[in-house]
Amino acid sequence: MSGSMEFLLWTKGPLFNIALAIFAIGLMARLVEIFMLGRAPNYAEPRAHEWPAGLRTMLTRTVADPGTFQRAPFNVVVGWVWHLGFLTALLFFVPHVELIQGVLGFAWPALPNPVVDFATAITLLALIATLVHRLTHPVKRHISTIEDYLVWAVVFMVVLTGYLAYHRLVEPYPLALGMHILCAEILLIILPFTKLTHIFTTFIARWYNGAAFGRKGVQS
């Protein structure tokens, strides 16, 4: 016998464990791969310390400089909107907070459902906008690979299935919830092997960038 509830329990049980294991193994492997490469010693006399500059850049790169914003407002705004919307839904939806509590043993306060619902709807629209942009902007079209579209599809499906499940637009609900969890698991599984790694490595990259420039006296 195999029905929607068994599917849900499979995604909540064994598959979740497998996905999280692959994610943890893959991500750790990647991080170790990065850090073990190290950097050559730098003998040049520094102008300033690397650490504060690197830490600052980890945050400051989140906001585009005014010139870039003017030249690519769509890129910047839509990118911001969907990242924020996605993070809002991911980190502050009550069921997700409970999930984090369950897996990590700690969590934080959640946002009211209507807020998350709104954020999710906006995220879906923004994601569609990013796809249209990717397909139409000459640069983005030129540099896009299959991976870019695959990652887009997975991210979009995660948000879409979440939205459908929340609004109970798919029956039976265990199927809807199971689909959402399955999509999220696919995302976890591919995360360490695709550009989704940037979720973590961005901060490393920004640190190195900020440190390199900061050492030379430029806050990047």
Binding site: G38, T197, I204
Partner: peptide
């Protein structure tokens, strides 16, 4: 290839913003 290089390549999301800062593209 060193740690920064690996971190950089790991992080690129093909957003294309670098083109907007390159006089040769622009």
């Amino acid at each position: 290839i060193d740690a920064p290089t690996a971190a950089f390549f790991s992080s690129c999301v093909h957003c294309g913003l670098c083109a907007q800062s390159c006089p040769f593209y622009l």
